[in-house]
């Protein structure tokens, strides 16, 4: 681990009791949901992590507690450092405070996670679906959501599928 990053992680550990893991020179810091805005503000203004490169979530269904991890990938342009924050969220009432106050880009990224995983971001200024239609049921990227596979048509089953395929009538 980079020595500069080591110091930052140490401070985070002391301040919030966060834990961390390392894999292929990438540092993942686990932060509690209620402290995430403070940690982001601290990193953004004290350590110049000016870019929220990516923000996403992972679903570990059927595990319930925590079911999701919300992931914040931060980049510091001036120090050329990267840091990943992971927020474990439970499955029954997934809620994370919004980061839109710290990074403007979080607005759309959180809407995407809301749409795709059904994680609620408390205090979000514009909580609408972003990718799917507004009246869509379910959250597609959850592991218990089916992929929606349709049987491909080949020579041997062409007619059988042709009969039930919903072709449009003019």
């Amino acid at each position: 681990m980079d020595t500069r990053l080591e110091k930052i992680v140490q401070v985070l550990q002391e301040k919030t009791g966060a834990t961390f893991e390392e894999f292929r020179d990438e540092v993942h810091v686990f932060v509690d949901a209620e402290k995430i805005v403070d940690v982001l503000t601290f990193l953004r203004y004290e350590h110049d992590f000016a870019l929220l490169s990516a923000m996403t979530a992972v679903d570990y269904w059927p595990k319930e507690d925590p079911r999701f991890h919300v992931i914040y990938q931060l980049t510091s342009l001036t120090q050329n450092l990267s840091l990943q924050l992971r927020v474990p969220v439970n499955g029954s009432q997934p809620k994370v405070p919004t980061a839109t106050g710290v990074f403007d880009v979080a607005n759309w990224r959180e809407r995407e996670i809301m749409d795709m995983f059904g994680i609620e971001f408390e205090g979000h200024p514009d909580p609408r679906r972003i990718l799917m239609p507004q009246d869509w049921d379910g959250h597609p990227l959850r592991k218990d959501y089916p992929l929606g596979y349709e049987e491909p048509q080949f020579t041997f089953n062409f007619e059988e599928i042709d009969l039930r395929k919903p072709y449009v009538k003019e």
Binding site: R129, I130, L131, M132, P133, P140, L141, Y145, L147, G148
Partner: peptide, 12 residues
């Protein structure tokens, strides 16, 4: 308003 070309690549 985006999402008119949502392809489900990540899930697929």
């Amino acid at each position: 308003e985006i999402g008119y070309l949502h392809t489900g690549v990540e899930k697929n």
